[in-house]
Design a protein around this nucleic acid. Structure first.
Length: 884
RNA sequence: GGGCGCAUAGCUCAGUCGGUUCAGAGCAUCUGCCUUACAAGCAGAGGGUCGGCGGUUCGAAUCCGUCUGCGCCCACCA
């Protein structure tokens, strides 16, 4: 096989992905093996791949590929989410650009456009994931709004309704006037916003609807809502306002009479101590209104405009109305003063519109029981969070959970299966036919034409929370006709979930609830939380900042393996990722390193008659042990989800141990041949390394695994078994470590003395140095002869310590005696001080009495080693002085 | 305002039970090398009062208190 001097990922990646697909290596069917299952966090169907997806899906792919090589039946289910608000607003925007307004369309017409949009843009992201190397079981691709999964949602709604946990109620909801829908509390983002605090005079009524000359002052940020005021409220303990008891005041401009009431909700020292109560447009005011039986007057429509109830400024947008009414109030003499004011204002997460608290009829799901169970799942350890700190956040939320508003005033989504009868009552059934039957049971003689289905759709999360169940069994086990499902019983519960902490409550918590409810088992065992991908300055990636690279461009430039490695290098669980293209470069460089190492190995000239050199036998023995040790470390890291640590261990194993030490050691001289045994072992190591790296860098490892020895069609590294961590002898590793340090010491001497690497250098080492490492040192430090001696005799040169072993580089006249003496004296002084410290510790009876034996023994060893070093230094100094 | 968490080298982070010759890694930096696998590389080197203060302990990066500075979540006083 011809190997180009430089690794070119583009063709290789395309080739192997096609090969994997062709052979259906990603596809899983239930069998006798242990399953390992991941369901993808479904991206928005119309979304495109961004760096967050790259991080998440790389982690997923590493886990799934690792499990596959560990012999498990690995199944990664991909799919997309219909994302009702996000998608609907995109469709609305697109239609608007074409001059079509959503209001002019029927529901059916709009949905036709939406489905067209979905067909056109939907699933692009899944194509993009293929470029990344994601080994999803594409045959199992799901969409949360496909007919089967919609049925799952509808069945779930009916299930919970019949259980009595879904109810319809009028509540103060967060209204998004731009999206024309209610959004949940979690979809509201509070931002500090500059506004004004308007102090308004409300004149006391004379009882006939006419103002007296007495007035009170209220402070409000929302003067446009005064027409909806139902009362003025003061704290009963506030003596300043006792004179107002029983009085009525007139709303400015419209002269409507409203009572003064008392409620301890009002803070005496905030504002003026007088609160205008506007039950229809403020959640707290609503509560006060309920307590005091105040009438509710809604003056804002679903677009945020004042309606007829306002009597003035009808049809004006709320913010326009605010400006206008301030002027009107000023002219009427009701505006006492205006203060600058900054307060938190709720914004819609999707549309960024200012949320309007609004009363409306919505559907709710009771959360109390679900939350209690789901909390126990995590508290009792059946679901593990990585990192663990999110347990606290989770607990806090689960203990303060409120009922879930599941209805949305949209069209794109699963329509609520409730049908209203002419008398205003309703029935809930999975289909219109069943609904009609149920309706007829209540009221004989009704026809379909008498029924009207609820206009709202369900919150998207009401479908995503079923994902780990519904992708395998869309009927859902709660259905009365449910039959056992082979896929569900095999793959559920899934194993690991990789997701961002931002959807801990939206999604993770609710999946646990649904899993507990339907399966009596949590949907996954481990939840690995990634951080947010930020740029290297720590800023969130955003379109407006333009700091978000296009992953596809990166993949094209550096290769998918490089991008994957670049993302994982700095990603410890739960930490934000500061993305820097330099990391992807590092990934590319690593690919180059692997590629070139292979070029070296593949180019070996084997001479079958050649016996194995001693240094090569040593190298093989060492690397075999080193490899086993590293595998054990990597396995441990994986078991603890320390993915970037596992990766770094492999990175150093390959680059430092394998390339810089092992290959340099066995590499024959230019033009020379190598013995067959060493080559055999080296290829074995290389293959093991490729297998270990494969989950992280699937493409280059497949390419080289296929090249390293002939493979049959249909063979793949994807199913090669993860190399097992064998026994390893640390004494072998330690001995080689000593040799490495010696080599580094000699190289350092060379560098200091400016000795060309080509010139050999005579080296003497003293007793205690492992004899089998002598050839290793000779080869790697280009030293020779290297001799094991009792003392250094009268040679001139430079000595250095490796642990407690003395080494000596013979330099002849190159030695600067004074310089060396100074160095040795300094080292000696340091060592004496060190010894003194150790002895001080050892003579402390408190220490020897309290510290564990092991620790004390360690100190005694330090003492002995230190003594031996001191002796060495003293000898070396003596020697140097004699030679002077 | 309530809760949770973080602070270790220029950057990003490890540091598992309080104890190894423990202060580490990768990247970046500096120096020297185009040495026949790799300059996207090789070899060598420098770099930290473990945020401040106090305490517990024979012993603290590690435990406790406190201060400072950051981050996240929840709530929202009109």
């Amino acid at each position: 096989m011809e190997l180009s001097a430089r690794y070119d990922p583009s063709k290789i990646e395309e080739k192997w992905y096609a090969y994997w697909l062709e052979h259906k290596f990603f596809h899983s069917e239930p069998d006798g093996r242990e399953p390992y299952t991941i369901v993808i966090p479904p991206p928005n169907v119309t979304g495109i791949l961004h760096m967050g997806h790259v991080l998440n899906n790389t982690l997923n792919d590493v886990l799934i590929r690792k499990a596959r090589m560990d012999g498990k039946n690995a199944c990664w289910v991909p799919g997309t989410d219909h994302a009702s608000i996000a998608t609907e607003s995109k469709v609305v925007a697109k239609l608007k650009a074409q001059g079509i307004s959503k209001e002019d369309l029927t529901r059916e017409e709009f949905l036709k456009y939406a489905w067209e949009w979905k067909e056109e843009h939907g699933g692009i992201i899944l194509q993009q994931l293929r470029k990344l190397g994601a080994s999803c079981d594409w045959d199992r691709t799901r969409f949360t709004m496909e007919p089967a999964l919609s049925e799952a949602v509808i069945n779930t709604f009916v299930y919970f309704y019949k259980k009595g946990w879904i109810y319809r109620g009028v509540r103060m909801v967060n209204w998004d006037p731009e999206g024309h829908t209610a959004v949940s509390d979690d979809e509201v983002i509070h931002k500090d916003t500059h506004s004004h605090f308007y102090h308004l005079r409300y004149y006391i009524s004379d009882g006939q609807g006419h103002p007296t000359d007495q007035y009170l002052v209220i402070a409000t940020t929302r003067p446009e809502t005064i027409m909806a005021d139902a009362a003025i409220c003061v704290n009963p303990a506030d003596e300043r306002y006792h004179w107002l008891r029983g009085k009525h005041v007139l709303i400015p401009l419209i002269n409507k009479e409203i009572p003064v009431i008392e409620d301890s909700y009002v803070e005496m020292d905030f504002g003026t101590g007088c609160l205008k109560v506007t039950p229809a447009h403020d959640a707290h005011d609503y509560e006060i209104g309920m307590r005091h039986n105040l009438p509710i007057l809604d003056i804002i429509d679903d677009r945020g405009r004042l309606n007829e109830n306002a009597t003035i400024l009808v049809g004006e947008d709320r913010f326009v109305a605010r400006k206008k009414i301030v002027k009107m109030l000023e002219e009427a003499g009701n505006l006492e003063k205006v203060e600058d004011y900054t307060s938190p204002v709720g914004y819609s997460e999707r549309t960024n519109a200012v949320i309007e608290p609004r009363l409306s009829a919505q559907w709710f799901l009771k959360m109390e029981d679900l939350a209690r169970e789901a909390l126990a799942s995590v508290e009792e350890g059946r679901v593990k969070f990585i990192p663990d700190k999110y347990r606290n956040t989770y607990r806090h939320w689960m203990e303060n959970v409120r009922d879930w508003c599941i209805s949305r005033q949209l069209w794109w989504g699963q329509r609520i299966p409730a049908w209203y009868l002419p008398d205003g009552s309703f029935v809930v059934e999975a289909t219109a036919e069943e609904a009609l039957k149920a309706a007829q049971a209540k009221q004989p003689g009704l026809t379909m034409a008498d029924l009207r289905q609820d206009e709202d759709v369900l919150d998207t999360w009401f479908s995503s929370w079923l994902w780990p169940v519904s992708v395998f069994d869309p009927q859902m086990p709660g259905h009365p006709d449910h039959k056992p499902n082979r896929d569900l019983s095999y793959y559920y519960p899934t194993n690991d979930l990789v997701t961002g902490p931002d959807i801990l409550f939206f999604w993770v918590a609710r999946m646990i609830m649904a899993g507990n409810e339907y399966m009596h088992a949590e949907p996954f065992r481990n939840v690995y939380f990634t951080g947010i991908v930020r740029d290297k300055l720590g800023r969130k990636m955003s379109k407006t900042l333009g700091n978000s690279p296009d992953p596809l461009v990166l993949i094209e430039k550096y290769g998918a393996d490089a991008v994957r490695l670049g993302m994982l290098l700095c990603s410890s669980a739960g930490n934000d990722i500061l993305y820097d293209e330099a990391q992807v470069e590092q990934g590319r460089n690593f690919c180059g390193k692997i590629w070139n190492a292979y070029r070296l190995v593949a180019g070996f000239q084997v001479d079958p008659a050649l016996p194995q050199r001693e240094s090569d036998a040593t190298a093989v023995r060492w690397f075999r042990n080193k490899l086993s040790q590293a595998i054990a470390t990597v396995e441990d890291h994986y078991a603890k989800f320390r993915i970037s640590d596992a990766l770094m261990t492999l990175y150093k194993l390959f680059w430092d141990d394998f390339c810089s030490w092992y290959l340099e050691l066995i590499k024959p001289a230019y033009g020379a041949s190598i013995d067959p045994e060493t080559v055999r072992c080296t290829l074995g190591f290389f293959e093991d390394l490729l297998k270990l790296i494969h989950p992280v860098m699937p493409f280059i490892t497949e390419e080289l695994w296929q090249a390293i020895q002939p493979r049959k069609e249909g063979e793949t590294i994807m199913f090669a078994a993860t190399p097992a961590a064998g026994e390893y002898d640390t004494s072998v590793i330690d001995a080689f470590e000593l040799a490495k340090e010696t080599v580094m010491g000699i190289r350092s001497v060379r560098k200091q003395k400016n000795l060309p690497p080509k010139d050999t250098l005579e080296v003497k080492v003293k007793g205690g140095f492992p004899a089998d490492m002598i050839p290793v040192v000779a080869k790697l430090a280009n030293a020779g002869p290297v001799s094991l001696v009792e003392d250094f005799g009268d040679a001139t040169g430079v000595s250095f310590m490796v642990g407690t072993v003395e080494c000596f580089a013979v330099l002849g006249g190159l030695v600067n005696v004074e310089e060396e003496l100074a160095k040795l004296e300094a080292a000696l002084a340091y060592q004496r001080q060190f010894l003194e410290n150790v002895r001080k510790k050892l003579s402390n009876e408190n220490f020897t009495a309290h510290a564990p034996e092991k620790v004390v023994a360690m100190e005694r060893k330090k003492e002995a080693d230190s003594l031996s070093k001191i002796e060495s230094y003293e000898n070396q100094i003596k020697l140097l002085k004699n030679n002077e």
